[in-house]
Amino acid sequence: MSTDTAPPRSTEAAGSPGPVPVSPLSLWAGDVATVTWRNLIKFRRNPEILLFAVLQPIMFVLLFSQVYGGSIQIEGGNYTDYLMAGIFGQTVLFGSTFSGYQMAQDLKEGMIDRFRTLPMHDSAVLFGRTNADLVLNGVSVVIMMISGAVVGWRFHEGWLSFLAGVGILLLFSYAFSWVMALLGIIVRTPEVINNASFMILFPLTFISNAFVQTDNLPRALEVFANWNPISALVQAVRELFGNTGAAPTPDTFPMQNPILTTVAMSLLMLAVFVPLAVNRFRQASSR
């Protein structure tokens, strides 16, 4: 029965010459940068990840603008202009689910165990994940804008407003990445994450103003759509790009104040899900 009566700390002597003392914050930032770099390498070596992120929205752009474009009338505008904000919203929403898929995958494959035996900051794994997915989403949005431009989409409110629109898309996608990352840690099965998010997010984007004006929807769905956070995001982007057309904006708070709603909603998601995910991550370890 030996109690640990203060053994001399011979432990620090081991290993290579100790690193120069650095501030905890820069150590943390270094960890985040390393993990982000690791995740980006995976994107670079597997271009199909990006391909799958944009393939479906590109198909949507073509189908909606070419098939429905003629029959859907947008007062004081054209349908292609109107459609693209919805496509951008859909792209970043689905793009963010990758954070959950990849967290589950890393847990499953034992990468998380590796990270957790290293003297790095736990939260760096999550920040590295969401940062890399933000880059992926950024690239996807650019590709979608090019696709939109090809079928005739244009923004009309000037560059500053355009950049604000891009910023709001990315802010939302980053915040939503954290929600998905937490789900990935809890669910732990990449395939389940994929299927479940598809089943929830698909109707969510359709019962919104992403592809149609909500006043065309049945009453119950119209109410839902006008309060749907996806609608707020799409409306905000639509306003900033000058793609709303002349139809009156539905009379709900999120629709009347879409930019405020989207920014507030994104910040709220970050405030809740960053600490929640980090905390949950500390308890997680592959079985």
Binding site: T34, R38, R45, D113, L118, P119, M120
Partner: peptide, 20 residues
């Protein structure tokens, strides 16, 4: 528990950086 998408060298470098 190594990253399949990284090379052997990148895996080792990553671990080194995370050891600061």
């Amino acid at each position: 528990a190594v990253d399949e998408h990284l090379t052997g060298r990148e895996n080792l470098e990553m671990v080194g950086r995370l050891y600061h």
